[in-house]
């Protein structure tokens, strides 16, 4: 499934664990939350990522942060915005690793996803066929500056800071 952000398509180096597949000892794998303990207990050499449902209490994952390299948050549909708040919470709790939005998000949401702390979106093939990369790249920069103080996507300026700079320039 295509993984992308405003810089373009991202390399797919992670493998998602198949149902009932034994935990592999090598390679970077994404495991469902239900099998996370099992994966972390295994003598693995590769990196571990976890796929979270959007009903997760982010705090429950905090003790495991230093043993994880990737977190993906499920978006069952683009209208279900819980993932935005989960990303904000994970970042607030100190998660500095990779964070993906996983599911049927649309191009017009990329800047919001980035502002909330996601690095990339992983979307289904059929959606990518309809909304090709250029739609995502264009949508990410249609609004060049935002009012919010804290959350902004890369490349999106802060209106408050621009105002401050304009005031300073006027003396």
């Amino acid at each position: 499934m295509p993984l992308l952000n405003e810089k373009g398509l991202q390399e797919e180096i992670w493998r998602e664990l198949e149902d009932h597949e034994p935990i592999p000892l090598e390679g970077d794998v994404i495991v469902p939350q239900a099998r996370l303990e099992e994966a972390l207990a295994a003598p693995r050499t590769g990196r571990t990522g976890v796929a979270l449902p959007n009903t997760i209490e982010a705090e429950t994952l905090q003790p495991l942060f230093n043993r994880l390299s990737l977190i993906t948050v499920e978006f069952p549909g683009f209208g279900d915005g819980r993932g935005f708040s989960i990303a904000k919470r994970l970042r607030g709790l100190g998660w500095r690793g990779e964070l993906w939005a996983d599911g049927r998000v649309i191009a017009d949401q990329l800047a919001y996803l980035r502002a909330c702390g996601f690095d990339s979106a992983r979307i289904p093939e059929d959606l990518f066929a309809r909304q090709p990369l250029e739609d995502w790249l264009a949508a990410a920069k249609t609004i060049s500056a935002a009012y919010q103080t804290e959350e902004r996507a890369p490349g999106v300026a802060s209106i408050l800071e621009q105002r401050k700079a304009a005031r300073a320039a006027r003396g």
Binding site: G81, F84, S85, Q109, A115, Y147
Partner: peptide, 9 residues
Amino acid sequence: SLHPEFSFL
């Protein structure tokens, strides 16, 4: 306005 976290409530 266009709040990134609260546009899909």
